[in-house]
Nucleic acid binder design. Structure first.
Lengths: 269, 269
DNA sequence: GAGAATTTGTTCGTATGTATG
DNA sequence: CCATACATACGAACAAATTCT
C-alpha cells in the first residue's frame, strides 16, 4: 500500500547511526533494520550514552525514537540479550549489564562436550564425603561469606566400561543434598540436576575456568596415573537466577584421557 | 474483540501434545504457546516422527496444523534453532540437524574470554613465517588433503604493557594472506578477521580444543618461563559456512599467566 | 493491602522482501 | 520468470510481573 513508501522514508529518517565513525559500508547488502538498531544500541552502550547498570528506555519510547515498530525494536533487543549486553525483566525493564560486545562475543558455543561433568555414560563413585564450613581460602574462592555450611564430596568419574577413572571430582553443594547423595553411589546423573531438584532453585548460569596443572602424587594415585603428568583442572560455579552460588566443583582430568572441545558458531548470520 | 474467545478455544483444540507420556502438569503456570510448540516439535524430532536430515513442513503448513499464527510458530522454531536442533535456510526450508536436545545443550556460552586469541589489547609479534605444504601429521591434524599450501606464522602474544609474552602462537592461514601479514608486525587485530577480509569468506564456526601440556625448554625460553611448568595448549580450527578450513592455530599459554574462563547461560528460561 | 500505572512478554493478523530451485 | 519458503516489518491487543500510590 501507500504505507510502504512512508515506511521507506521513515527508515531513512530513523535515528539509526552506525556505532563508530566512518564504518564499513554494508549498504550493498541491505542490513536488516533490527540489526542496524542493535548495532546502534550496542554503540550507545559501549560509549556510555546508555550507562552500565541503568535501564534502557521503555520499548514503546525507544521504538518511537527510532521510528520503528515495537516488534522490530524487540528483535534488536533480543539480539543484545543473546550477546549478553542486556537482560530484561517483566514489569521492571531492560538492564544494561555489560558494556562491551567485543568481537569475542560474536560466537556462541553449543557443544555436547561443554559440560563433560554431566556427560551421560559416566559413573561418579564417591569415596569421601563430609560436612564442612567454608573458611579461609575456600570461602574466598567460593566468593561466599565464611562460615556457610557445605556438603562436600570427593570421588572419581569413569566412563562406563573403562578400567581407569577419567577424572577426580571434588564437589561442594547445599547441605540439604547430603542424604540424597549418600543414598546413591555411584551417581549417574549430573549433580547440578539433583541440586535443582532438591533445592527447587533453577541453575541459570555456570562459570567455568580451565587451568593446566601437574598431577601430584596423591591425585595421580587415585587416578591410576603418573605423578608429573599434565592435567586439566576445571572449576565450575553454579548460580541461581538471583546470583546465589548453589554448587561448586573441581575436576582434575589427565591429559591422556581428556581434551576439552567446544564448537563456536557465528550468531551474526 | 470476539476473536479473543475464538483464540482461547483454538488453543485448547490445537494439536499441541506434550512430548512424552503423562508429563508434568504445568497448566498452573500457563506455559507460553510457543514453548509448548517447541516442546512438541522437539519430541517429534527425538522420536523420529520428524526424521533427522529431513525438512520440517513449511511454516504456514505447520502453523495451520497447530492452529497458531505463523509468528508464534516461528518463535518455536527459533528456539529449536538456538538449541541446535534445526537450521533454516531461506528459499529452501528448515532442516533437522540434531535429534537430541540433551541436557548438555541447555547451556550456551557467551564469554568475553572465549576467544582470548583476539582479545583486544594484545600484540602479536611475528618472529618466523614461511610457506609450507601440509604433509604427514600436519595434514592429518588439519584434516586437509596433503599438499595443500599454507602460510605459517610463529610469534608471541603479549598484553600491551606486559614485560613477558602471554602466549606462543603458531598459525596456519591461506597463502593469500602472506603479503598482508608480513606487512604488519606487530598485529593487533584478530587474525581470523584478516582472513575474512582477504579471502572474502566468512568464518562461521570455530572448533576449539584445550589440552594441558608441560612446557618444553625451547617454548619456555621464548615465553621467558620455566621448562616443566604446566600450560594450556589451545587448538583452534576456523571454518567457512561450507565447512572449508580457513585457518588453524595453536596457542601455548603458561598456567601462571592465563586461565580459560567461560560463562554458560541457561537458554531454556 | 488493594489497586492503578508501568513495563516486558505473548499472540494474533497482514504485507512485503529475498534467496532457492 | 515463477513458485516456494524463510526473513523482515508493520500494527494491535491482551497477559503477567513489578512498582508506586
Amino acid at each position: 500500500m501507500s504505507s510502504d513508501a512512508a515506511r521507506k522514508r521513515k527508515r531513512r529518517e530513523s535515528g539509526v547511526e552506525t556505532a563508530t565513525g566512518p564504518v564499513q559500508d554494508n549498504s550493498f547488502a541491505r542490513t536488516p533494520l533490527y540489526l542496524a538498531l542493535a548495532h546502534d544500541l550496542e554503540g550507545r552502550i559501549r560509549d556510555g550514552r546508555l550507562p552500565l547498570g541503568s535501564l534502557l528506555p521503555p520499548e514503546p519510547d525507544l521504538a518511537a525514537e527510532f521510528g520503528v515498530s515495537r516488534h522490530t525494536l524487540r528483535q534488536a533487543i533480543q539480539r543484545l540479550r543473546r550477546l549478553g549486553l542486556v537482560s530484561a525483566k517483566k514489569g521492571v525493564g531492560t538492564t544494561i549489564c555489560e558494556a562491551d560486545a567485543s568481537s569475542a562475543r560474536r560466537f556462541v558455543s553449543a557443544s555436547r562436550a561443554d559440560l563433560s561433568e554431566q556427560a551421560e555414560g559416566t559413573d561418579f563413585t564417591i569415596f569421601e564425603s563430609a560436612s564442612v564450613r567454608a573458611r579461609g581460602s575456600l570461602a574466598s574462592e567460593l566468593a561466599c561469606r565464611p562460615g556457610r555450611e557445605w556438603f562436600t564430596l570427593k570421588g572419581t568419574r569413569s566412563e562406563i566400561g573403562a578400567d581407569r577413572p577419567m577424572a577426580l571430582d571434588e564437589v561442594y553443594v547445599d547441605p540439604r543434598l547430603a542424604e540424597t547423595l549418600k543414598a546413591m553411589n555411584p551417581i549417574r546423573q549430573a549433580i547440578f540436576r539433583l541440586v535443582e531438584e532438591v533445592t527447587g532453585e533453577r541453575i541459570a548460569e555456570i562459570r567455568q575456568t580451565i587451568r593446566p596443572v601437574i598431577l601430584d602424587r596423591p591425585t595421580a594415585e587415585v587416578l591410576n596415573a603418573q605423578a608429573g603428568e599434565p592435567a586439566l583442572k576445571i572449576t565450575r560455579a553454579y548460580f541461581s537466577p538471583s546470583g546465589r552460588l548453589l554448587e561448586l566443583s573441581y575436576q582434575t582430568l589427565p591429559a591422556d584421557r581428556f581434551a576439552y572441545t567446544t564448537v563456536l558458531r557465528d550468531v551474526t548470520a
